[in-house]
Amino acid sequence: MRPFEYTRADRLEHAAQLSEAQEAMAIAGGTNLLDLMKLQVETPANLVDINPLGMGRIEDTDDSGLRIGALATNTATAVHQRVRADYPVLSRAILAGATQQLRNKATTGGNLCQRTRCYYFTNIDHPCNKREPGSGCGAIDGIARLHAVLGTSPQCIATYPGDMAVAMAALDAKVEIANAEGASRTVPVREFHRLPGDTPWRDNVLEDGEIITAVTLPAPVGGTQI
């Protein structure tokens, strides 16, 4: 791992301000980020620990939906009584991925922000437009099995690896996002991730200094979902 400054954020605005800086990254569970930092794929100069911000609650919304805090772990979400009863596809999607050890640490916001990636992205000996803009794509003329078929660009054919976001998209979930000025906005999960296009290094619509605060699910539709 490259050296970095570690800062614990005590307020949301503080966290957003810190992460607005160049080469700063927010860390929650760390299961994807630390893995990539060990490989020197991610080399943040500043690491902003957002865990002290709370944001781990899962609570009913006024319209019978559910608000899942950005720092609620994947385990907390998957085993939550209401998720199991009303949004089983979400429990199933989470339980189908990773391992219990990883799900115990991985968070809602972090899971959505896990890097769209392929094995050329995680190997710094190969060119990758996502890791190093303009360096080329090792995958397109390399071993391309299991890479994207739809939504590709001449710059990148990596796929988004998450299962949780797929279930959230099916449920018409929305992502709550806050910025350094204290403003917030809401983006449907379906519109949160970006196709590679000409900017494959941008996986999602988050701007510098923006932090996910929660994901909200609308009232359950009922019936059998799996």
Binding site: G30, T31, K105
Partner: peptide, 19 residues
Amino acid sequence: CTVLVNGMRINSCLTLAVM
């Protein structure tokens, strides 16, 4: 590297001690 943190099992290799 599995250990228990406040009773929950996690991979101790993917978390910073300082956290």
